[in-house]
Every structure is written in structure tokens, then in C-alpha cells.
Design a protein around this nucleic acid. Structure first.
Length: 444
RNA sequence: GACCCUUUCGUCUAACGGUUAGGACACGACCCUUUCACGGUUGUAAUACGGGUUCGAUUCCCGUAGGGGUCGCCA
């Protein structure tokens, strides 16, 4: 019997990191086993569902690169894949329960399932055998007075109907599973294999909620993270190849995606490390791919950044690519390259002030830069001029590089300097230097 | 509070019952670099605690403590 798994989100907000990983693990398991990955939208709570959330799920999964074999926009033998459109199926299953005497109706019309009140042992692929004592639990409601059905009921009905063989979901569902197994048994169906994965937590240890910054997948899509990098990082939260490798593609992960390689404890999401993965993948991008990514992001900004409409933009991007961990960091570099009027940054001026004879150095530097023939205004030519200035001052050329950086960019950090100066051109570089020299001099 | 899951550097994690407890992020130092970075080398840093079992416990068992989750006519 072939593997059939599903991702069954409810469209009540943006897709969040935990949901993304649940989808990812289901997808990985399906692909590893040559099975089927079903997307099912659990939109039974009309009051809370939105079209925007609906789109966020589809867009999010596409961004992650997780293609579904059955589901919205794809169809399949068990269509429809929206629970809001499956009412007749639920009615039929509901009647089976009623006929078998498993239900009773409350005064207000809500219908409850009469629990067998047993201790259930859940053989979980990750947690092991989990005892769930249902003997003292209240009966679950399965249908509201208005006739709509509750999550537990529709979830189980659909898993039966869609022939789901494995349920991979967050550990926060582990007690629901007790209820679900009761329903499977009441329907005379064999429960699927369960695997409850530990949760992803905020850095402070609290449960990642949809509201928090960085918890929504949108946070990463808006910042143009590379999906492959994000997926790579996400896999390492809750799963491990059990060796020292960290940069792993789907092809590396698939053969090792086994229950034994799943972790048992919750993991905190570390944005710094996620950014590091992104930087690793960003650095490997070829120029056209990077340009495409960067420009697409630039065009989406409400406030246009310097250089966005400048024909020199594409020639500036290669200077920036190796310096950033995420696309939005382009902004500061564009300011530096395209906006010569920005004042000298505080940390730059402090660091500069520590140099001896700063006025003399800056002037000497300027003089030598002015002396460069326009045709020699290249990284190598500028380097030669810096060396000449250093010789005149009897200091190491390296000592002049930082002042030069501050004069040209106003910053203590930034792109590789010599190529940047070549890119800026002689007139612009000199204009900036002249304007900034006064700012760089110690206050009298 | 009850129940369930869980516990190795700050974080993510590795370690057939025998390792100087390894790697990565972050942080520091050094090297490379005529700057900023990348990279390389390296340093600080962990088996929650208490009992067992064992020649030997990070590893197995039992407690305690910590963390997380769940206790809906939300999903």
C-alpha cells in the first residue's frame, strides 16, 4: 500500500514557520516513499477563514517548492479539497455515527460523540508509545447547533476518505489524536500511522505564534530569502543527517529522511543562523540570478531606493552580492554607492579620529587621487596612487585605505573599496572626498 | 493544577555503554587581505540534579527540577 500524506492547514492567517515545516516534512516523507502529498484546506470555521489566508497557503507552499499531487488548483480523485465543499460527505459519515448510536444531542442542538472512555496507546513514530487516558475526558462535540462540523470529525472523515496512511503533524496535536483514534474505531477504520514532530519555539522559548515578527513565512518571502536556504535551515530544526553536514539540498536530505533521524525535543528558531544559510546560498548565485532577485525586490519597495532607476544599477550589484546575508541589506550599500551626500557615520568618524596626523593624511590622499590620469582610474591605478601617498607619508598603504573608505562612502563598512572607487569614477570620488574632508577633521 | 512530550556549549545538533564529549551559528584571537568582507586556524562554552544498574553511564532504569504542549461548540 503506497504512502499518502497530507498537509491540512486552516486558512486563518498567514502560513507560519511551524506550519511550513509540517508541510515540508510531509512532502519529504511522500517524496522519499514515492507516495502522494495531498493539500487539504480545513476551512470549516467560516467566521475565521479569509481569502488572503487561503492564498498565503498556496503561495507559501509554492515558494517553499512543495508541490502537491492532489488538492486545490490541482484536483484529484478525492476532490473537492476544501472542507467547506464537502458537506454531503460529512453528513453521510455523521449519519453512520448516529445510526450506530455513538452520538447524543445537547439541548441546544450540538451533537457530541459518546467516548468509549478507554486508555488509548498511541504508537507514535517519533514519541514512541504514548498513553492517552480518555476515561475521564468529556465527550467531544462533533457538530455545532448550526449543523457545521467540528475539526476532529471532519479531519478524521477526510483522512478516511482520502485514504491517508501517515499523519505527520505538530506535537500540539498529540492529545487530539486520542479523540481521532476513537472516531476511526467508531467508523470501523484503521487509524493511520502517526508521527508527532516537536515544535518550533521563539528564541525566548515561547510557542511561535502567528503574530510575532519572524514567525510568519511572509517575513522571509518579503525579504527575498532564498527558498532553498530557508528549507535547508528548516529541515535542521527537528531533523538531522546525523553527521556534520549542514548545507544540504533536497537530494541530500531525501535518502536520510527517516523517523530515526527525527529529533524529539523542541527547537528554537535562530534568525542569525537562518541568515547565515541564506548568505551561503546567496553567495553561490550566478550574476543573472542575483540581479533578478535583487531587482525584483527593489521594485517592490514602497520608498524607491537610490539607484533603483539608475542604469548603473546592474553594474553595482556584483559589488554588493558577496557582502550581504539577505537581500534587504542591499539598501545600505545602494545608499553608499548612489548617494554621495550622506554624512560620515558615527563609528567611522570615531575610528578615523584615532589615526595620527589625520588632516595631513587626508590631504595627501586627495592630492594623489587628483593626480591620477582619468584613463588610469581603475582599481589598480587607484591602488598605485594610494601606495604613492603612503610612501610620501612614510606609512603603510593599508593605513590609508580606511580613511579613503570614509571619504568615499562615509561608512566604516561596505563593499570592496577599490572596485567601488573605480565604479564611482574619478569626478564623483573627488567630489565626495572634498565634501567630507572637513567632516573628518577633529573638531578644533 | 492534571496529563503528555522533552532535557548535551547562549542556539541548532553529533557521539554501538568505553571519545581529550565532535560540528555549525553567535562571540573573541590570530593568519590571509594594501580597506570591508569571504576564507583558514584557533579560543571561551555543554552532558540539569539525585539515586540506582554496570568493571565502566551523555547513553539504560527510577525520582526531582527546568522547558514546552494539551486540557473548546478554534484548527
Amino acid at each position: 500500500m503506497s504512502v499518502r500524506v497530507r498537509f491540512a492547514p486552516s486558512p486563518t492567517g498567514s502560513l507560519h514557520v511551524g506550519g511550513a515545516r509540517t508541510a515540508l516534512f510531509n512532502w519529504l516523507y511522500a517524496r522519499k516513499e514515492g507516495g502522494v502529498f495531498v493539500l487539504r484546506v480545513e476551512d470549516t470555521d467560516a467566521a475565521r477563514n479569509t481569502a488572503a489566508a487561503q492564498a498565503a497557503i498556496v503561495d507559501g507552499l509554492r515558494w517553499l517548492g512543495l508541490d502537491w499531487d492532489e488538492g486545490p488548483e490541482k484536483g484529484g480523485p478525492h476532490a473537492p479539497y476544501y472542507q467547506s465543499q464537502r458537506g454531503h460527505i460529512y453528513d453521510a459519515y455523521f449519519q453512520k455515527l448516529v445510526d450506530a448510536g455513538h452520538t447524543y444531542t445537547e439541548e441546544n442542538g450540538a451533537v457530541r460523540f459518546r467516548s468509549p472512555r478507554q486508555v488509548i496507546v498511541l504508537p507514535d513514530k517519533i514519541c514512541g508509545d504514548v498513553k492517552i487516558d480518555r476515561t475521564e475526558e468529556p465527550d467531544m462535540t462533533i457538530r455545532r447547533p448550526d449543523g457545521s462540523y467540528i475539526f476532529h470529525f471532519v479531519n478524521v472523515v477526510d483522512d478516511i476518505e482520502m485514504e491517508i496512511t501517515h499523519v505527520i503533524r505538530g506535537e500540539d496535536h498529540i492529545f487530539n489524536t486520542g479523540k481521532h483514534i476513537e472516531l476511526f474505531r467508531a467508523f470501523g477504520a484503521e487509524p493511520p500511522v502517526y508521527a508527532h514532530i516537536p515544535l518550533i519555539l521563539n528564541p525566548n522559548g515561547s510557542k511561535m505564534s502567528k503574530r510575532e515578527d519572524g514567525a510568519a513565512l511572509e517575513y522571509y518571502t518579503k525579504r527575498a530569502f532564498l527558498p532553498a536556504a530557508f528549507v535547508n535551515y528548516l529541515c535542521l530544526l527537528g531533523w538531522s543527517p546525523k553527521d556534520d553536514r549542514e548545507i544540504l539540498g533536497i537530494d541530500d536530505i531525501l535518502p536520510l529522511f527517516r523517523w530515526e533521524n527525527m529529533n524529539h525535543s523542541n527547537a528554537k528558531f535562530d534568525l542569525e543562523k537562518c541568515l547565515w544559510f541564506n548568505a551561503q546560498y546567496l553567495a553561490k548565485l550566478d550574476a543573472p540570478a542575483f540581479d533578478h532577485l535583487a531587482i525584483a525586490w527593489l521594485l517592490k519597495q514602497e520608498q524607491p531606493l537610490p539607484g533603483t532607476d539608475d542604469p548603473r544599477l546592474v553594474s553595482a550589484l556584483p559589488l554588493i552580492q558577496p557582502k550581504i546575508k539577505s537581500i534587504p541589506e542591499i539598501a545600505e550599500h545602494l545608499h553608499m554607492l548612489f548617494d554621495g551626500s550622506s554624512p560620515v557615520a558615527e563609528d567611522a568618524s570615531v575610528k578615523l579620529a584615532a589615526q595620527p596626523e589625520i588632516a595631513k593624511r587626508l590631504e595627501t590622499l586627495k592630492t594623489h587621487l587628483e593626480g591620477i590620469e582619468t584613463t588610469d582610474w581603475t582599481a589598480a591605478g587607484i591602488q598605485a596612487a594610494v601606495a604613492a601617498a603612503a610612501k610620501e607619508l612614510a606609512i603603510k598603504p593599508g593605513a590609508l585605505m580606511f580613511p579613503l573608505r570614509v571619504l568615499a562612502t562615509g561608512q566604516a563598512h561596505g563593499v570592496d573599496l577599490l572596485p567601488a572607487l573605480e565604479w564611482l569614477g574619478k569626478p564623483e570620488t573627488l567630489r565626495r572626498a572634498a565634501a567630507r574632508i572637513p567632516q573628518c577633521l577633529p573638531a578644533v
